[in-house]
Simulated scan of single mutants.
Amino acid sequence: MNQERLPASDHDAITDAAAHWCMRMHADDCTRAERQAFEAWLLADPRHAEEYKAIANIWQAADQLPRPKVHLAYNPPYRPPPLRYRLRRLAPTFACALLALPLAGWIGWEQGWLPNHYEHFKTTDALQTVQLSDGSSVELNLNSEVRYFNFKDQRKVTLVEGEAFFKVAHDNEHPFIVHAGRGQTRVTGTQFNVWKYQDQVKVTLVQGSVLVSSDGDGGYRLGPGMQASYRLGDFEPQLAQSPDQDNSLAWRSGKLVLDNISLQQALPIINRYLDKPLRVADDNTGKIRISGVYNTRDVGRMVAALPKVLPVYLTRSKDGGTVLNRISPPPPRG
């Protein structure tokens, strides 16, 4: 039985991941932890192994590196898309290999398929500011990851996870495009913040203007102080004037600011800093409001202290996560 056909955007994500892993498996500095993560990725979905096989064959055909010694556990009845499509999709990650072939590299650059520069940055427990090759700077929050590709006609960044503040070097002829989730933010030179948690994305503009689109065509232009939010399935982003721009950017100083919002609204913000997500037991618990300024490196301790400041108690879920439960108020007297 043939597997269900994936949407193009989902298949793109698998192809990008397979290309990234192929590059890492061939890298001299590939670590044991990366190889373990790669094996886990292979086992997560039959399509992962099949796509990796196809990309490894293309790498082999380019005669750049020997075939890696990797055990592929699956051999599913899955037919990958045509070679021409795959070559176009994996071009960013394979730039370093293909540009070694002068003709292929020149054609790929001229057609806008291949970048001439690739950079990858990832943080865990510390903030980091990095300088891109185009002169732009990126501040990364904890547990964040970005990939940068410089093409002939555009600069492309993928926010894989987490949060980043961008100061983009101005270039009218070479737009700067940040992909996060199913949407993208397009600029030529400005300052803005992009936050991503699971399928939720929020863009906050500080200076200049940006064009934000979600899962549909076109887009909406933001002015300074505006925010655009979207998640999986949204055809259009939700726009708002941001009264709490400083709160949205407080992470740059290592702070998490919660300004009288409900626990349900606070969960995605808090969970960005936890190993296992915090949950609420029910809707009534989720309606409790919370305020405060916390250290982003100490969010776990903040969660443990919530029963001291809110009418809640903590329990554990079956997967070991923390659950907030509302304490019922005493019945009225009389």
Rank of each mutant, 00 (worst) to 15 (best):
Q3L: 15
E4T: 12
R5G: 03
L6V: 06
P7A: 12
S9G: 05
S9R: 13
H11C: 08
D12E: 14
I14H: 01
D16A: 13
A19C: 05
W21D: 04
H26N: 15
C30S: 02
T31I: 04
E34W: 07
R35T: 00
R35M: 08
A37I: 00
F38W: 10
P46S: 04
R47N: 01
E50K: 13
K53F: 06
A54L: 14
A56Q: 12
I58S: 05
I58K: 02
A61Y: 14
A62T: 04
D63P: 03
Q64Y: 09
L65N: 09
P66N: 00
R67G: 06
P76C: 00
P77I: 01
R79V: 15
L83P: 00
Y85W: 14
R86F: 04
L87N: 00
R88F: 09
L90R: 01
F94L: 15
A95F: 01
C96P: 00
A100W: 03
L101W: 11
L103S: 09
L103Q: 13
I107R: 13
G108Y: 00
W109C: 05
E110K: 11
Q111L: 15
Y118M: 13
H120G: 02
T124S: 10
Q131I: 02
Q131N: 13
G135H: 09
L142S: 01
N143Y: 12
N143G: 00
S144H: 01
V146K: 00
R147G: 00
R147K: 10
F149I: 08
Q154A: 12
R155H: 02
T158K: 09
T158W: 15
E163H: 07
F165Q: 10
F165W: 10
A169L: 08
N172Q: 12
N172D: 14
N172P: 03
E173S: 10
H174R: 14
F176S: 10
A180L: 01
G183K: 06
T188M: 11
G189W: 11
Q191W: 03
Q198N: 07
Q198V: 08
D199T: 11
K202S: 08
Q207L: 09
Q207I: 05
Q207S: 10
G208N: 09
G208E: 13
V210C: 07
L211E: 12
S213E: 07
D217N: 14
G218I: 04
Y220R: 12
Y220E: 12
R221A: 07
L222F: 03
G223K: 05
G225S: 00
S229L: 06
S229K: 06
S229Y: 11
R231H: 10
D234P: 05
F235M: 14
P237F: 01
L239M: 12
A240H: 07
D244Q: 12
D244S: 13
N247H: 11
A250I: 02
R252C: 03
G254T: 07
K255E: 08
L256N: 05
V257W: 11
L267W: 06
L267V: 01
L267N: 04
I270N: 05
N271P: 02
D275H: 07
P277R: 02
D283K: 14
D283T: 14
N284W: 04
I288P: 05
S291G: 10
T296S: 09
T296Q: 13
D298N: 12
R301I: 07
V303H: 06
V303Q: 05
A305T: 09
L306H: 02
L306M: 15
K308F: 08
V309Q: 08
P311V: 08
V312Q: 05
G320C: 09
T322A: 06
T322G: 06
V323Y: 01
S328Q: 15
